[in-house]
Simulated assay, not measured.
Amino acid sequence: MVDYVPFPISFSEHVRLSFVQASGDHIPFQDGSFDLVYTNQALEQMDHIKDNVLREIARVTRRAAVFSEPFRDWNASGIRRNRVLASQYFSGALDDLKSYGFVPIFSTDDIPSKVILHTGIVVAEKLVQSELRNS
């Protein structure tokens, strides 16, 4: 991680900390490696590989994911809608999450956001395989 931090940093007090750089469409961890996966305006930058990234997030999380992303649900009107449509910007929608094995259990767009693109937060619980087959 020292190679990526623009200022001197010591890891002597953080001996359990490790840094892995990888592509979002191939996360180099085993299935169910994490209780929680968190994204913060990352999916919007990877719209062209969003499907693979969401499948990978579902694969490596055991329990839940938190998405802080500009889902289309929050950018469906006014200047935000026009910007999203004109630029073919981030195509993700809340309803899409179920197809990747997540069910939103909490969502809000009541957070400060940019004027031209609104970001909200979604907490989504991972569905177990039996729930996926029954939906």
Rank of each mutant, 00 (worst) to 15 (best):
V2H: 05
V2C: 02
D3T: 13
Y4I: 15
V5D: 02
P8N: 11
S10D: 09
F11N: 02
F11D: 04
F19P: 01
V20F: 06
V20A: 13
Q21F: 07
Q21S: 14
A22W: 14
S23Y: 08
G24A: 06
D25F: 10
D25H: 09
H26D: 12
I27A: 07
I27D: 00
F29H: 03
F29K: 04
Q30I: 13
Q30E: 10
F34L: 01
Y38H: 02
T39R: 01
N40R: 02
Q41T: 12
Q41R: 12
L43D: 00
D47V: 00
K50C: 00
D51C: 04
N52E: 09
V53F: 13
I57T: 03
A58N: 08
R59W: 08
T61D: 03
R63D: 15
R63F: 09
A64Y: 10
A65F: 07
S68H: 14
F71V: 09
R72K: 07
W74Q: 08
W74I: 10
A76I: 05
S77T: 15
I79H: 07
R80Q: 11
N82K: 09
V84Y: 14
L85A: 01
A86L: 09
S91N: 10
A93N: 11
A93D: 06
A93L: 05
D96Q: 03
L97I: 03
L97S: 05
S99C: 01
S99L: 12
Y100W: 02
F102A: 04
F102Y: 10
F102D: 08
V103P: 00
V103N: 08
I105F: 03
S107Y: 11
T108D: 06
I111S: 00
S113A: 08
S113G: 01
K114T: 06
V115M: 10
V115S: 07
I116R: 15
L117G: 03
L117C: 10
I121V: 14
I121P: 02
V122C: 09
A124D: 02
A124S: 00
K126S: 11
L127W: 04
Q129F: 05
S130L: 05
L132S: 00
R133C: 03
N134Q: 12
S135N: 11
